[in-house]
Computed example of a mutant assay.
Amino acid sequence: MNLHTTTTFKHLEDIALKVRSHVVKMATNGGCFIGASLSAVDVLVYLYTEYLNIHSANLNDPERDYLLLSKGHDVPALYGTFVELGLLEGDRLGNHLLLDDHIYWHPNVKIKGVEFHSGSLGHLPSVAIGIAIDIKLRNGKNKVVCVLGDGELNEGTCWEAALVANAYKLDNLIFVIDRNQFQANMATEDLIPLEPLKDKFESFGAVVRRIDGHDFAQIDEAFSALPFEEGKLQVIIADTIRGKGLPSIERRADRWFCNFTTDEIEQLLQELYGEPQAFLTSNTLVVR
């Protein structure tokens, strides 16, 4: 699918803005992993609106495509996308962390559209491999996308999965790396350096494309070109910005998990939508 029209990209940008507002609103009454959630929004919006065969009427159809959010702490971005596409009732996001619903810090399969629980990092690439092998055995055409965090790549299971995926020639499997340069409250390159990341995946047998994960034209171009090469694991490294959309918290290690007051949420929403406001100072945010 090729979306190279300004009108179409504007539509995706509008959806992404609404999803970001959902993420911001979930960062209170207990908080959420806001920084990494905001970095993944554009890729998730594109995948669900333009690439994946997933919609409200086919969630149990064996011919549907699959998305596995391995970096499960990004679930506010996933649920916000679900709301904008009609997969989840918008008012349920207000139940975040309440005992009478299943919406909390990581994906739960009791929420329609969630394929698998995630939380402990590094596990879902292997789950994605199982699904991709099953599809191959059935001669199916389903696509399997597994979204990973860059810090998650410190888990050896991710690299074992890459080896297995290539051994079984799973070209129906796509790893999308949300490369926002941070893991928890530290820059990835200050802890366990990942670069040159593209070269590393290629050395494991994958075929790799690196893009700007906030540029819908580049996102569309990459996914429209899949498979890049038959018989290999497909990897898309999406360079992103932690906290994208909120300049006051972008690229900040201390804005990993945030628990804001109601007034702070209102200020952040004003910042998100570009309205005049007094920007938050580093001393006004409640962070855990």
Rank of each mutant, 00 (worst) to 15 (best):
D65R: 05
G122M: 13
L153I: 14
H73W: 10
N58K: 00
A128Y: 06
R64H: 01
L69E: 03
I15Q: 07
I135E: 04
S126L: 13
P196L: 04
E89I: 04
V147W: 05
H117Y: 15
E271R: 08
V147L: 15
P125K: 01
L88A: 02
V286K: 15
Q267T: 14
Q181G: 04
A36N: 10
F201A: 03
L98Q: 15
E13S: 12
D150K: 08
P76R: 02
F216T: 02
H96F: 09
T49A: 05
D42G: 03
V43C: 07
K110F: 06
C258A: 09
V75Y: 07
L78P: 03
H117Q: 13
S224E: 12
G156C: 14
E160A: 15
V164D: 10
L246P: 06
I265L: 06
R210E: 15
V127Q: 06
K232I: 01
K200A: 12
M1V: 07
T49L: 04
E271T: 13
A161T: 13
P107C: 08
I129Q: 08
T7Q: 14
H123S: 10
E13Y: 11
P125E: 14
W159M: 15
V176Y: 13
K232D: 07
H4P: 03
V147H: 05
V286Y: 08
N283S: 11
N283C: 05
V24N: 09
T7H: 10
E115H: 02
L153D: 15
F228A: 08
E250D: 09
V127S: 12
G113P: 01
G86M: 04
V19W: 03
Q234T: 04
I34S: 05
G243Y: 02
G94L: 07
L173V: 10
E152N: 11
R209I: 11
A40K: 12
F279K: 15
V114S: 05
V286T: 13
L85K: 04
I131C: 10
A40Y: 06
V43M: 12
T6C: 01
C146E: 09
N142L: 01
G72V: 06
N142T: 06
D74N: 12
L194V: 14
N139K: 13
P276W: 03
N172Y: 13
N60S: 03
F257W: 13
L44Q: 04
A165C: 13
E13Q: 11
H4V: 09
H22F: 11
E13W: 07
D74A: 15
G213K: 02
T5Y: 02
D101H: 06
G30D: 13
E89G: 07
G122N: 12
I265D: 07
Q267I: 10
L163N: 14
L38A: 11
A253R: 05
R179V: 11
W159A: 15
L148T: 08
E63T: 00
F201K: 05
V83I: 06
G30F: 05
G72W: 02
W159K: 10
A16M: 08
M186F: 03
G245H: 00
H73C: 12
K110G: 01
E63R: 02
K141Y: 09
P247I: 02
H106Y: 14
T157F: 11
S203Y: 07
D239A: 12
G130P: 14
N139D: 04
G151Q: 10
T8D: 06
R20I: 01
V24G: 11
T8W: 00
F279M: 04
F260M: 12
V144R: 01
T8H: 09
D263P: 00
S126Y: 06
